[in-house]
Design a binder for these strands. Sequence first.
RNA 1: CGGGAUGUAGCGCAGUUUGGUAGCGCAUCUGGUUUGGGACCAGAGGGCCGCAGGUUCAAGUCCUGUCAUCCCGACCA
Length: 568
Amino acid sequence: MRISNLLIPTLREIPAEAEIPSHRLMLRAGFIRKLAAGIYSYLPLGLKTLKKVENIIREEMDRAGAQELLMSALLPAEAYQVSGRWDVFGPAMFRLKDRWGRDFCLGPTHEELFTQTVINEVRSYKEYPMTLYQIQTKYRDEARPRFGVMRSREFIMKDAYSFDRDSAGLDESYKKMYDAYCRIFTRLGLDFTIVDADSGAMGGSGSQEFMVKSPVGEDGIAYCNKCSYAANYEKAVCMPSEKPFPEGDFDIEKVQTPNVHTIDELVAFFNAKPHMFAKTILYKADDKYIAAMVRGDREINEVKLKNLIGCTDDLVLAEPHMVREITKADVGFAGPVGLEIEVIADLEVAQMKNFIIGANETGYHFKNANINKDFTPSRIADIRTIESGDACPRCGAPIETAQGIEVGHIFKLGTKYSDSLGLTYLDENGKSQTVIMGCYGIGVTRCLAAAIEQNYDENGIIWPVSIAPYHVIVMPVNAKEDAQMQAAEKIYENLKAAGIDALLDDRSERPGVKFKDADLIGIPVRIVVGKKIGDGIVEYKLRTENVAVEKTIDRAVSDAIEFVKARL
RNA sequence: CGGGAUGUAGCGCAGUUUGGUAGCGCAUCUGGUUUGGGACCAGAGGGCCGCAGGUUCAAGUCCUGUCAUCCCGACCA
């Protein structure tokens, strides 16, 4: 493509709305434009890149034996009403009515519709196993769309669903998708980590997330560099760590602690370490109130707590007036002694000795508290968030933590949708059996942002060759010099003939403008045609390198072709 | 949904405190000189100052409301 014929509206200045690198660069390089919060248009360069990502995903899904189909994004309410998710999604689902007043939604995810399709179309058990997928636009009315296409309200997703006769079959289908995902993200040039994920309210027997480590990631992940353990914060198993406590058989003692509320203030008041306190936090779980205890230097993981107690609604901090009613003290003085609600203590609390807790009386704490002597929690469980340096639950080495962008999620669903929608089959003996399902998602548009987050510098994007909108840019320094322009045209035509996506910067801009644009849009290979063209010499530079090398025309072309083909 | 901030030309911003002809840089268009890392000179076009009310002789500026966007948090199959 000639740049003079291509819409590449690059921006010199960073739009004020963008915060993270991928969002800024996609705007500046002319890949996307915003229509409304969380809704974007893809301009020619953005669409070209998007299509390349889609094609890699499509090739690998097909290779894994999945079949592509395409459903509408505009969906009737019935299937979601039957599965119960018409209510579960709440305000996150875009809803609308047709002219007759019938309910529709814009599909946020398609488990119900794929299940329905299989119910309608599959006649015999002999057709299983089967995996169906689509690459399609999804709609979720996010409470807070942000970071450009990283979390948007309209986005493109590859969603796949597997249907098996039994759980052994599901394991096999799941493994195929797992392997396909590894190939896909490798081909996309992403450095990814696979973590165990929380199954949560979805139930099922397992789930893993494909995470791209990045400071702008919205999820916390824990991983071990010694063994292969990796999990997200909600799933990571926390091993209790040993800490020193005062030795001896002390009796619990009430201490006046005026104006001391936070752990920091307690540390100063008692001249002790944060781990020598236990904090007691009150939560509202569905219709009841509970207390959760963790060591003073730890954080409660609310997802773990929610899963533990089987809370169906949101688990939220108790309102201050309820804290006062339950503890009979101001917020900041809650403790387990004498509390009449359920108390759930973290595993580490069980190892503490002679520690400090709130006294359920404004202005007082207890010191020398001991578990099972001064109070007895109703449950002791892993309810804290893992931290860097914790022992790996598998091998004991120190755990590392990082932020990650979730680009893929694979899930053993089990029978949730086949049960609620009635997807069964007759086996060889004429007996009715429930189909076992899995679901597998990739955030296609999010992959674009993730790829940029991992590949950019101060000058712009550095696309991996496999998804670069164009592979090579040919740039005559001065488009008015016939010799330069003619040579550039020839190089461009030769590259195209070899199947390379080539760009010709035929604009009569000054060289600086062209260099800046080429770097900004991140084309992997640059061939500059300058004054030495009289000697048949051009300049060859990779976007990842700082220096250019001079080559003959033929050599530059053949090197570029070889470089690109080796990385597709 | 809680907390914070911002809406002025395509983009980035000043002007709002103290009401009085709407500005700057970049981009765009014309002419000329330039051509190896975002050129220079001369000229030109482009605005319902987010929107709606109100106060005032007079509102970008003050008041009320409203909408939008961004950030932190909550939420996120």
